[in-house]
Write a protein that binds this DNA or RNA. Structure first.
Lengths: 244, 244
DNA sequence: TCAAAAGTGTTGCCATTACACCCATGA
DNA sequence: TCATGGGTGTAATGGCAACACTTTTGA
């Protein structure tokens, strides 16, 4: 099936709600960096976007978001949270979409709805970096990779603002909802946990006090030690206690 | 102009974005009660709803929300915050709208779009109770009044859940954004401020420590004393410092 | 035996809590 | 002068930050 056919099938039928889109800020933690999964668009210029999509007419917003997330990461049951609505008039994706469809070779004007103005619902998702195999959207994407939050590439429309707002919300929610644990594997050392906190909050934390704070919360279960072969005391592995 | 004409004008033309609505939880503080402004629907049964509306095709989401808020309160420049998206499939307003339009006498089927499924954007707003003159929507509403958060009437669809989520978000944001001051007049006594906090958080606070906490924040300007005629020390009036 | 990293005891500080007293007000 | 409520000094508490010491590990 060629791209034009794929495009027709995607937006051709009356399957989606018009003028509403979902944009996902997919956070991963790797190499002591907070990363975001960003597809690169098929354009002559270098431009990236947030992974997003539309809501089916018979699909809940949550299900749509889960579907979009799964289509990009291969993972189901992802932790996600809605953090904003982006509905300014000047957020215009028309030229962008037009350039891409032209490039693909779409000539029909039947699908004007994708050129229309969109209100975007912002969600952030926290995933375990190592479990993700980034997948790209055949029609729109040239590639799909992780980018450090500190070194974001050029982003389409207002997607940089959406990422910033998502990050701010994540920071506020970090202590409040213990959301961060979704970025780590099932087991982790205290050092890994601390690095994750430090990276998200973008500030150093004291090792001794951080350890105590986490242990005092009574949410961690201590497992066996992790012998790395390094010439120092082996750290314990921890896991989140199963919630009562 | 009769109701049918008004209805035609409202939803007849292609002015609004389809399948997206805005629902507003308008909070006011009065009589030591946190209140919500709720219109009562024109139905045989007693049913209330959140004040809401649609987004114009050439109107930003924020402008739409401001317009809706002004149409209900008469106030411009209202403090507002988006707190959630309600997009489940089972949130069905079709029967409700149909009953109301039947009651009005609308027979045309041209405006099917208002019977469609809607994704609702939840906003809460904080207003100064005494400045509001509740206005009702001629077409849908029988009346429009304030109801204590503790004694909410029967609400349509999922509007009770929307109110709860809005209240939870307000509680979290209360300290974080100093949002609560928008519920009070320009000047207020420490007692009024405390009552407002207590009512929103639904728990008692110590008078002495609350006063100190507020003063230590260095956001209040002390004005003249307020002589009420009561046989006790006159409290100072305060106002929010103009932000630097 | 040593360096590096992990784990924890202890101390001091600061912010919040609790108790107290004093002050202002009009009957 | 009394009851009532407002304003603030001060002591007690508890959580957190800082420091230090011990333990563990492989070279």
């Amino acid at each position: 099936m060629d791209l034009i056919q794929e495009f027709e099938q995607w937006v051709g039928e009356d399957t989606y709600i018009k003028q509403v889109s979902i944009d996902c800020v997919i956070f991963g933690f790797h190499d002591n960096n907070l990363k975001v999964l960003l597809p690169k668009l098929k354009l002559d210029e270098d431009l990236w976007s947030l992974p997003g999509g539309y809501i089916g007419k018979d699909e809940s917003v949550l299900d749509a978001t889960r579907r979009i997330l799964e289509s990009r990461t291969g993972l189901a049951d992802i932790y996600l949270e809605q953090f904003g609505v982006f509905g300014e008039l000047n957020r215009n994706s028309k030229d962008l979409v037009k350039t891409i469809t032209n490039k693909i070779g779409v000539t029909t004007e039947e699908h004007l709805w994708v050129f229309d103005r969109f209100i975007s619902l912002g969600f952030y998702a926290l995933v375990e970096y190592s479990k993700v195999t980034p997948r790209l959207n055949n029609i729109l994407d040239e590639s799909c990779d992780w980018y450090s939050i500190k070194e974001l590439p050029a982003l389409a429309i207002d997607h940089d603002q959406i990422i910033q707002k998502g990050l701010e919300t994540l920071r506020i929610m970090l202590d409040h909802k213990l959301a961060g644990f979704n970025l780590l594997g099932e087991t982790f050392t205290m050092k890994e946990l601390q690095k994750m906190y430090e990276t998200i909050l973008d500030k150093p934390l004291r090792r001794d006090n951080f350890q105590r704070k986490m242990l005092d919360m009574d949410i961690l279960e201590r497992l066996e030690k992790q012998y790395t072969g390094a010439a120092n005391k082996a750290p314990y592995l921890y896991k989140l206690k199963t919630i009562k």
